[in-house]
């Protein structure tokens, strides 16, 4: 038992780091993911995760696998694409989903091309799928900072963000916080995607964000509970994914996401708030 569940972490430092890093990502990703979902922006998160790639790739081209350069590049590219997609949606006939789809396809292709210019296939795999087992001191620190900052800013932003999502007209009529709230939220999304990018790569950065959030919504009737459940699921999935991948000898990132996926499918059936079994359980209807 001990050998199976705890030994991998007590023996290997890289496993401990992977665990700490993915827990940090789960904690900060949960509130971001829940609000992306409530704002019907689940796919926006995915698109923006891809949009980060060319920025990180340019950083890589200039400085190799350097944490600073790739993070800065990713942040800039993420924010630029988010703003550009918003502007296109606002000023042209294209809706935001169409413009995001366009931007993320371009970004992904551009990013892969840029990396191939200089790097090996190993580097490309690293950027696409991350390397949760190779988190160094500096990356871990970055993840911790992102996670802490996200949670603190979220606490301050919580009320206007709920209202901006639920009833934007009312928020506009009582306060001018609407536009800044959206902008800060967008920045938090990009920040967490860049964090996720280092651990899970550009293709799965949203995994620890969206899957627990979507699962949690099937269990919870209110936002705070959904966030708490999503955090718990993310943490458990991180741990379980690392243990499973260690013993099965397969890459850790995908297994973590697969465990999240398993939670999601279980929630679909058993979710207390709106799972399928509850919906079709054939309970007798009430009197009133």
């Amino acid at each position: 038992m001990y050998d199976y569940l705890i030994a991998p972490f007590s023996e290997f430092e890289f496993m401990r780091r992977a665990l700490v890093g993915s827990i940090a990502l789960s904690l900060a990703g949960a509130p971001v993911g829940v609000f992306l979902m409530l704002r019907r922006m689940s796919l926006t998160g995915d698109a923006m995760a891809h949009a980060i790639l060319p920025g990180a790739a340019i950083g890589y081209l200039l400085a190799g696998l350097s944490l600073g350069a790739m993070t800065a590049g990713g942040l800039i590219a993420g924010v630029l694409v988010a703003l550009a997609a918003g502007a296109v949606a606002r000023f042209t006939a294209l809706r935001e989903d169409a413009s995001l789809a366009a931007f993320y396809l371009i970004s992904l292709a551009l990013g892969v091309t840029i990396v191939s210019l200089r790097g090996s296939n190993v580097d490309l795999l690293h950027l696409l799928f991350g390397s949760v087992l190779a988190l160094d001191e500096a990356t871990l620190l970055l993840l911790a900072v992102i996670s802490t900052a996200t949670l603190v800013i979220f606490a301050a932003l919580y009320r206007p963000l709920v209202l901006e999502t639920l009833d934007p007209g009312y928020l506009a009529s009582v306060s001018g916080a609407g536009a800044p709230t959206q902008l800060v939220f967008l920045c938090l999304v990009v920040l967490n995607l860049v964090g996720g990018f280092h651990a899970l790569g550009t293709l799965m950065a949203v995994g620890l964000m969206m899957l627990p959030a979507a699962s949690a919504r099937l269990w919870a009737e209110d936002v705070t509970a959904a966030i708490a459940i999503a955090m718990g699921m993310g943490v458990v999935a991180s741990y379980a994914g690392l243990v499973l991948s260690y013993h099965a000898g397969v890459p850790s990132g995908p297994v973590i996401i697969l465990v999240c996926g398993a939670f999601y499918i279980l929630s679909l059936f058993f979710g207390r708030a709106s799972g399928l079994i509850r919906l079709f359980s054939g309970r007798q209807h009430l009197e009133a």
């Binding site: 409530l38 709920v162 999502t165 639920l166 934007p168 007209g169 919504r217 209110d222 936002v223």
Partner: peptide
């Protein structure tokens, strides 16, 4: 407003 832009699926 006439038709308040309220997201009625929001869990609140």
């Amino acid at each position: 407003p006439q038709a308040a832009d309220i997201d009625r699926s929001f869990p609140i």
